[in-house]
Amino acid sequence: MPAAYGFTAYGGPEVQRFLDPPRPVPGPGELLVEVHAAGVNPVDWKVRAGMHRAFLHLDLPAVLGREAAGVVVRLGEGVDAFAVGDPVFGTTDRGCGGYARFALLTASRTALKPAEVSFTDAAVLPVAVGTAYDGIAQLAPKAGESLLILGIGGGVGVAAAQLAHAAGVSVAGTAAAAKRGFVESLGATVIPYDGAAFGERLRTALPNGVDAILDLVGGDALRSVLPVISLGCRILTVADPETAARFGAHPLKRESTTETLTELARRVADGRLDPHVRSVFPFEDAEAALREVESGHPWGKVALDLRAHR
């Protein structure tokens, strides 16, 4: 079997292929992990498309994947919080490398995997679920307040809805009408963005506006919810800085620490949080897994299982 899946040049899906790079060697602050599962995220195809070239410098060909879970096989210099044989999950070093038999994880952004948490669930926690945790922490909605999540049906939105709902926050979110049942199962009110009369549905669902908005869409998403942006509304966004400034929004900042990942795994283990891994592909179907995410319409999270074979 090939050792990894990645891309040989910046561009579309046609530049993706299986690769056979040498096994990585962990440097200071790194772990070498035998990967059991890897999360598949929109950031992966954006890296391949060259959207992150300005700040993520890669030598091509490069292996895709920003998060993974597996078993430690080697420790880099200065790593003393983990041991060989530990089941772990975390963020891949240098922002790529997770779609592989062996991957490097950054120790300061890696945590031990509880026995109650599957490798596929653990693998999808660092990026989307970690982003949701950071977003809710930065907005700090209190019990009884209202939160509107733009793009609630994706991996980040699904986790953010659960985290806010568990804190006693009244949650609503925009999503495709087809996801109504799924979103409502998270304890949130869905406001379908497709079809006519979105503004009317928005005002009906939130007649008094909202206390906070988590924008996970960018673009024109904030403009579309102007009717519920009242004075004092706290807004966190993934939109570009110019758009953010126009609406008085703040950028969503990532922390992704070992402590955060440990807390997320604890919540999954005791049933308070479900990352909703809806699609698990064997490694040989990595192309199909990324295609599902790149389509822009997955429900919940997508993962690769590197131990599964058809």
Rank of each mutant, 00 (worst) to 15 (best):
P2G: 04
Q138K: 11
G168R: 04
R180G: 00
V73S: 13
S108P: 00
G78S: 12
P26S: 08
Y10T: 05
L104C: 06
A115I: 02
L186M: 12
D93P: 00
L290V: 11
L222E: 03
P13E: 14
E259W: 00
A103M: 10
T204A: 15
F119E: 02
P87W: 09
D121P: 00
E263S: 09
L304H: 12
V35A: 06
A178Q: 12
D86G: 03
G218R: 07
V117Y: 12
G12E: 15
C233N: 06
L75Y: 12
D285H: 14
F119V: 05
G98V: 08
S230R: 15
T92S: 10
N41W: 06
L31G: 04
P298V: 13
D80N: 12
V158C: 14
P2F: 10
A244F: 05
V35L: 03
T189F: 00
G248S: 09
F198P: 05
A239P: 06
V88D: 05
Y99Q: 05
L231D: 14
N208W: 00
V210W: 02
Q162I: 09
E116W: 00
D59K: 14
T106C: 00
S256E: 04
T120H: 13
R74Q: 15
L222G: 03
A286V: 03
H276C: 14
A212G: 11
E145K: 04
V71G: 04
G90K: 08
V84Y: 02
P114D: 03
L202K: 07
V88G: 02
L56T: 10
L60D: 12
P87L: 10
V238K: 03
S185K: 08
V33F: 10
S108G: 13
A175V: 11
Y99C: 08
V43H: 01
A178R: 15
T106D: 14
V302N: 07
A166Y: 01
R254E: 11
D274C: 06
R66S: 15
R203I: 01
N41V: 10
L304W: 08
R307D: 14
E116Y: 01
A177Y: 00
A265V: 09
S146Y: 01
T243F: 01
V71S: 09
T174M: 10
A83F: 00
F119W: 13
P26N: 09
G199M: 05
E292D: 12
A178S: 15
E287M: 07
E184G: 10
R310F: 09
I229P: 01
R272V: 03
D215S: 06
A123M: 12
G209M: 01
V117Q: 07
Y10I: 07
V124M: 04
S118C: 08
F7M: 06
